[in-house]
């Protein structure tokens, strides 16, 4: 399954995207999203940046600090591969 990590926001709002193919199953993805989903009630950080994970038909705001140990390498690689998407 292809998963896409998107970073938005920041001091100047820049969109960055990285994607990778994984062996994660639908069920594993569902479980993972339950753990790392960002609480929408979290106060808005001034100049903060945010991550969204997209896989299949699912897309959710995520908190990378909550990523379980077994997925840390995967998300670390995704973060390192984030590339700016030119908007204009």
């Amino acid at each position: 399954m292809k998963i896409i990590l998107i970073r938005t926001g920041g001091f100047i709002p820049v969109k960055k995207v990285a994607e990778t193919e994984t062996n994660i199953t639908d069920q594993e993805l569902g479980n993972l999203l339950e753990i790392i989903r960002r609480d929408p009630a979290t106060p808005r950080i001034r100049d903060g940046h945010y991550y969204t994970l997209t896989a299949g038909n699912s897309s959710s705001g995520v908190d990378l600090e909550k990523v379980p140990t077994e997925y840390k390498d995967l998300f670390s690689k995704l973060k390192n591969n984030l590339k700016i998407v030119k908007e204009t």
Binding site: T8, P13, V14, E87, T88
Partner: peptide, 30 residues
């Protein structure tokens, strides 16, 4: 990499953007 600075200087160029993280909370930095 970034293209061109999207900030308007005047109200007639105000950008109505979505009030979410992808929309910069309605373009607060725009």
């Amino acid at each position: 990499e970034l293209g061109t600075d999207p900030q308007p200087a005047t109200m007639d160029k105000y950008q109505n953007l979505p009030d979410n993280d992808a929309g910069d909370w309605g373009g607060v930095h725009i």
